[in-house]
Design a protein around this nucleic acid. Structure first.
Length: 909
RNA sequence: GCGGGCGUGGUGGAAUUGGUAGACACGCAAGACUUAAAAUCUUGUUCCUGUAUAGGAGUGCCGGUUCGAUUCCGGCCGCCCGCACCA
């Protein structure tokens, strides 16, 4: 008679035992440390299946490493600042702070109920004053170190969230959270100088061997390093006049000197400005500099300079802004460019548009040769210098442009095997390797040598120099929001922009008088927050009202977890330096791939900043040594007859159709997509825990699908997982309890030996699966071992040993069931503390093996032989096999290939 | 357009130095137990050759290398993800 396994009773009981014994607290970091971390959750109010999968994976690793004898740190906390709290307050009243802490309380219970081996003693929320106080201290340290600065910049403005977004947070021209089309605005902003580390962040990627290739590639592309030449094309002397001496000015009776000094020129422009209000804001020095310096361009292909046929400026180029004034045609052109749309996709697919400014510049190498200066909509102001030289023969965009506007196309790179006399560029630019020609001193060079030679020459001529360009921009962190970390800065009219003295930290968020129903920043209109006396001169000053981008919060939380040893979370430092330095880096980080360039890049930057401010000893600056990006949990979408989405829990199967439980409407099943509230295809983990238990939920999300891929939630799959847990329990209940689960049956023979072999082979594969993050294969092996235990009905030490292996290997996956089984079987202490089963290598080899026999690569038969049989004997046996003889027929045996232990292939013709 | 990944039964997937394709699970079918159902257990389940101790085909398609290819190479087709005129 077996007792039914009751997860609802068993699971909380073990959780209580773990809790009371405080077994998951990471106290000592010995020689073998392992820091397991999953991306901490935003406290939205409910746990979803994505969390379950994410934390189940981390928990498998944490528990497995513990069993392997590591000191494991596996903490948990809350990424608690952010817009949803403000939105909730706006929609439902209440306060963002209350909403957030209520949600944390609501989520902590189910998270604990899932039985993760988490060290809750280090728990914190990023909205805790103690946390953001330290973040403000870090901000000031970064400022001191030159990693923070302030400038007026064109920023991405999200009109729905009413805030600024970083470049990384603009996806396809839309805000990453709101989805609103992002506008450009000029604003005073705080920036983190992430570009300072562009090279290091790029090079560091090569050292991250345990990161997915995909994420590394994405980050490398985002940093976007390119090496090339920045140089200027000087204006042809007479054309300089044309820049500013346009018809309109002439008509107005102004005159420009032929070779003006800067003073004369400035006077001329001032006259011009006074004649037209649209000149307002023009910086005369900038204009003058462009006149003196010519047009700065950036290129990665200086080897093709002899093929240059035009210069193209971005429509946003500052020089254009000057010359566009009073030029109706040019204004019309710029308007036309703007009309094509501002989303990234629209820009990318827009037709090439050009405008000839009439200006001319000198070719640097060819005396007397001039190039026309065009404005082209495909040139981006945000990259390089906002200006290029066009070499149509060897750049597709330039070629499209040249063909459209009838500009010269001169090939200068000859592909191998082509004849210089006949080589012709049609509609496809040649961008590959080749030999330079039509290029005077560069002739006969290959691409790489040509590039070096051209750069050297330009440097000699003092027209430019070799430079490295990055796409990466500095990280704008000012947010005009309430629910974030206040930027610890004071603006004093006399003393300027001042850091808040460290002793005055934290700059705490006010709780009262926060009205989120009015657009704009509540801190800015708060009655007292803004008003502060300057600590330097004592006069009334203004407190900074912007808060930090919430991605800053998640850029160092892992270090605070690590440096919270002993005295708890420190209040006088972001973290204990020694402890953080010992635990860091995170050995295994697990989270969603959606953070590939956001959080994961910011954290790498921040950690370097912490290192360079002397806050942590971590020479590499890499916070995450191992990264795993897990797939999503998906579910079918259901709609009723009216096309309304229906929750899976509200559906009942009736014959061969699905009906709504209450309305009885017929339900149609749609696509399988990521669980989302709006599509109502969500399954609440709480329901699963109640119905089947935490172990079943954990087991299911780890079964079947490879962890990096999406897993489809299905009712039948859950039932299967539940059946399996019962099967394990039945095996344990029916076991002979005389033997300890730590038994070793070294003298086993017969069935007992077979079972032992099976168990150890399974153990090996289960272990490999966990190590390689292929939990689905570990799960499959656990099934096999379970099936073997059902098959071999023996009751002896070999069975106890195999069962002991089974229970210890399921422990990381289904810890409660494992504890219960371990206890019933008489295991010592907690299975959590039990060492990982020791692999008996002798059990992995068989004395007798089955060797497949192939004839011409087709399997015809098999041979059961001792594993070390001589090749000659194998050949003889193979050739005398009935099926083999039949397959050979009247053919002639040409060759017999014997791969010991693997296969025999007989080649017949 | 560029970069990366993927394509295997009805389904999820396994087969990581080129060596028995389809492990394991879900589903389905048959059977046992039961008054019955549920649960549980047993057996079968890539397709085709009406029967199968037999044979043929088969890992998106076409070709190549090899004694042997899901695996390596070339060319297509399809799907997913990322970047998107980055000079």
């Amino acid at each position: 008679m077996t007792n039914r396994y009751n997860a609802a009773e068993v699971e909380p009981r073990w959780q209580k035992i773990w809790d009371e014994a405080d077994v998951f607290r990471a106290n000592n970091k010995g020689d073998k440390k392992f820091y397991a971390l999953e991306m901490f959750p935003y406290p939205s109010g409910r746990i979803h299946m994505g969390h379950v999968r994410n934390y189940a994976m981390g928990d498998v690793v944490a528990r497995y490493k513990k069993a392997q004898g590591f000191d494991v740190l596996h903490p948990m906390g809350w990424d608690a600042f952010g817009m949803p709290a403000e939105n909730a307050a706006k929609e439902n009243g209440g306060h963002p702070k209350d909403w957030t802490y209520d949600n944390i309380a609501a989520m902590k219970a189910p998270l604990k109920r899932l039985g993760f081996a988490l060290d809750w003693s280090r728990e914190f929320a990023t909205c805790d004053e103690a946390y953001y106080k330290q973040q403000q201290a870090i901000f000031l340290k970064f400022w001191e170190k030159g990693l923070v600065y302030r400038k007026t910049a064109k920023v991405n403005w999200d009109p729905v969230d009413n805030t600024v977004l970083a470049n990384e947070q603009v996806i396809d021209g839309k805000g990453w959270r709101s989805g609103a089309v992002v506008e450009q605005r000029d604003m005073d902003q705080w920036f983190f100088k992430i570009t300072e580390y562009a090279e290091e962040l790029l090079e560091g990627l090569d050292t991250l061997e345990r990161w997915p290739e995909k994420v590394r590639t994405m980050q490398a592309n985002w940093i976007g390093k390119s090496e090339g030449l920045q140089m200027r094309f000087e204006f042809v002397s007479s054309s300089r006049d044309k820049v500013f001496y346009n018809k309109e000015l002439k008509n107005l009776g102004s005159s420009i000197p032929v070779n003006p000094s800067q003073k004369e020129y400035t006077e001329f422009l001032e006259t011009a400005l006074s004649l037209s209000p649209s000149y307002e804001g023009v910086d005369l020095n900038v204009v003058w500099e462009s006149v003196l310096n010519g047009i700065e361009i950036f290129t990665t292909r200086p080897d093709t300079l002899y093929g240059a046929s035009f210069i193209a400026l971005s429509p946003d180029h500052p020089l254009i802004k000057k010359i566009a004034i009073n030029n109706a045609k040019l204004e019309a052109f710029r308007a036309e460019c703007a009309k094509l749309g501002t989303t990234e996709e629209a820009i990318a697919t827009a037709p090439k548009l050009g405008f000839d400014t009439g200006l001319k510049v000198k070719h640097p190498f060819v005396a007397g040769k001039t190039l026309p200066v065009w404005i082209a909509n495909f040139v981006l102001m945000g990259y390089g210098t906002g200006a290029i030289f066009g070499c149509p023969a060897h750049d597709q965009r330039d070629l499209d442009f040249a063909r459209k506007y009838n500009l010269d196309v001169t090939p200068v790179v000859l592909p191998d095997g082509e004849d210089a006399a006949t080589y012709d560029i049609g509609t496809e630019a040649y961008t590959g390797e080749g030999t330079l020609f039509n290029s005077d001193f560069l002739n006969e060079f290959n691409k790489a040598d040509g590039i070096s030679a051209a750069i050297a020459k330009i440097q000699d001529m003092k027209l430019g120099q070799g430079v490295t360009n990055y796409r990466l921009r500095d990280w704008g962190v000012s947010r005009q929001r309430y629910w974030g970390c206040p930027i610890p800065v004071i603006h004093c009219e006399d003393c300027g922009v001042l850091p808040v003295p460290e002793a005055d930290l934290p700059v705490a968020l006010p709780y009262d008088n926060i009205d989120l129903t009015i657009p704009g920043n509540p801190l800015d209109r708060h009655p007292t927050f803004k008003h502060v006396d300057c600590h330097k001169c004592g006069k009334a000053a203004r407190r900074e009202t912007d808060t930090l981008d919430t991605f800053a919060d998640s850029s160092w939380y892992f270090a605070r977890f690590a440096g919270g040893q002993g005295k708890g979370l420190p209040d006088d430092a972001p973290f204990d330096k020694d402890m953080a330095s010992q635990w860091m880096p995170v050995d295994q980080y697990v989270g969603g791939v959606e953070h590939a360039v956001l959080h994961l890049l910011y954290a790498r930057f921040f950690t370097r900043g912490l290192r360079d401010c002397g806050l942590i000893d971590l020479p590499s600056g890499e916070p995450f040594a191992g990264l795993f990006t897990q797939g999503m949990v998906t579910h079918a979408v259901f709609t009723d007859e009216d096309g309304q989405y229906v929750m899976p829990a509200d559906i009942i199967e009736d014959g061969n159709q699905l009906l709504h439980i209450e309305t009885k409407k017929i339900i149609t099943q749609g696509d399988v997509i990521k669980m989302s509230k709006s599509k109502k295809n969500v399954v609440d983990p709480n329901d699963i825990i109640e119905g089947y238990g935490a172990d079943v939920a954990r087991w299911f999300v780890l079964s079947d699908s490879p962890p990096e891929r999406d897993v489809e939630w299905t009712e039948s799959g859950v039932v299967g997982a539940w059946r399996f847990s019962k099967k394990i329990w039945n095996l344990v209940e029916g076991a002979n309890k005389e033997f300890s689960p730590m038994s070793l049956a070294n003298d086993a023979s017969g069935d007992a030996l077979e079972l032992r072999k099976f168990a150890h082979k399974a153990l090996e594969k289960i272990t490999i699966g966990i190590e390689a993050f292929r939990f689905n294969t570990s799960v499959a092996q656990i099934y096999e071992l379970t099936n073997a235990l059902s098959k071999y009905k023996i009751q002896d030490a070999a069975r106890a040993e195999s069962l002991g292996i089974l229970i210890r290997t399921i422990a990381p996956f289904m810890p409660h069931l494992a504890e219960e089984c371990w206890s019933v079987l008489g295991g010592d202490g907690l299975v959590y503390h039990a060492p990982w089963p020791k692999l008996d290598a002798a059990m992995l080899v068989d004395d007798n093996i089955t060797l497949p026999l192939q004839v011409n690569g087709k399997r015809r038969s098999e041979l059961s032989i001792p594993k070390d049989m001589a090749k000659d004997d194998i050949e003889a046996l193979a050739l005398s096999d009935e099926a083999v003889i039949r397959a050979i027929g009247d053919g002639t045996v040409r060759k017999v290939i014997i791969v010991p232990g693997r296969i025999v292939n007989i080649v017949v013709s």
